[in-house]
Amino acid sequence: MTPLLSVRNIKKTYGARIGCTDVSFDLFPGEVMGIVGESGSGKSTLLNCLAGHLEADRGQVIFDTRADGPMDTLQMSEPERRMLGRTDWAFVHQHARDGLRMSVSAGGNIGERLMAVGDRHYGNIRERAIDWLGRVEIAENRVDDRPSAFSGGMQQRLQIARNLVTGPRLVFMDEPTGGLDVSVQARLLDLLRGLVREMGLSAIIVTHDLAVVRLLADRLMVMKDGHVVETGLTDQVLDDPQHAYTQLLVSSVLQV
C-alpha cells in the first residue's frame, strides 16, 4: 500500500533556534496520527510545515495525489499547493476565527470552498451547506447568521464543516478541542470520530491533551525540543511509555 503522506527529514529553524528537526514518518489512508508534546516542543511548527503554511528549511512532504501519484508538495508551485489546500487537504485551526470568514454568513463560509473548486449553482451550494450544518449539529435556521454570532463550540463545528465539505483525504488539526469546555469537547470528539470513519479520512492531530489522542488517534508521535522522542501505537505509548519525557508527560496527567 502506498502511504498517503510520506514525510522525510523535515527541519525548520528560527534563526539559531530549532523549530523541529529530523522528522520522518509515513501516514497511510484512513490513519489518524496524534502529535503530542508540551508548548514549544515544535508540534505546531511541524504541522504548519507539513501543511505548507511555513516553509521548511529542508526535507520532503510527499503526498499521493489523485491525478499524478506521489509528489513532493514542498517542490510544488504555489498555485498547485493552494489547489491541494482547497481540495484534498483541510486545515482545522485551533481558533475558529483563523479558519473562518467572520463577516460572511455560515452558509457562505461552507459555500466558499465549494465555489473554489468550481461549483456555481446557488441552489446546490446552499443545499450542501445546509446538509453540512446538520452534520455538525448546527440548526438550519442559522445558515444566514454570521459566525461572529455563534458560540465558540459552534464556530469550531462550522470550521470543520467548511473544511470537510469538499471531501478532503487528509485533514490537519491544530488543537481542535483547545479552549472548549469539556461537554462541547466530548461532542466535537464524537463528531470528528464519526466523520473520520464515514469519510475514511486520514488526519494529523496536534494537541497537548492526552485524553483527546487516546480517543481519536491510532498512532502517536511524542515531541520534545523539536525532536521526535517516541512513536508507536497510541495505547502502547500511553500505557507503556519508553522515553523519559513520555513517562513524565503521562504521569503528569491529573486524575479526575
Partner: peptide
C-alpha cells in the same frame, strides 16, 4: 495479556 495485545512493548 497486554503484551499479546500489543498494549505493552
Amino acid at each position: 495479556m497486554r503484551l499479546i495485545y500489543g498494549n505493552y512493548l
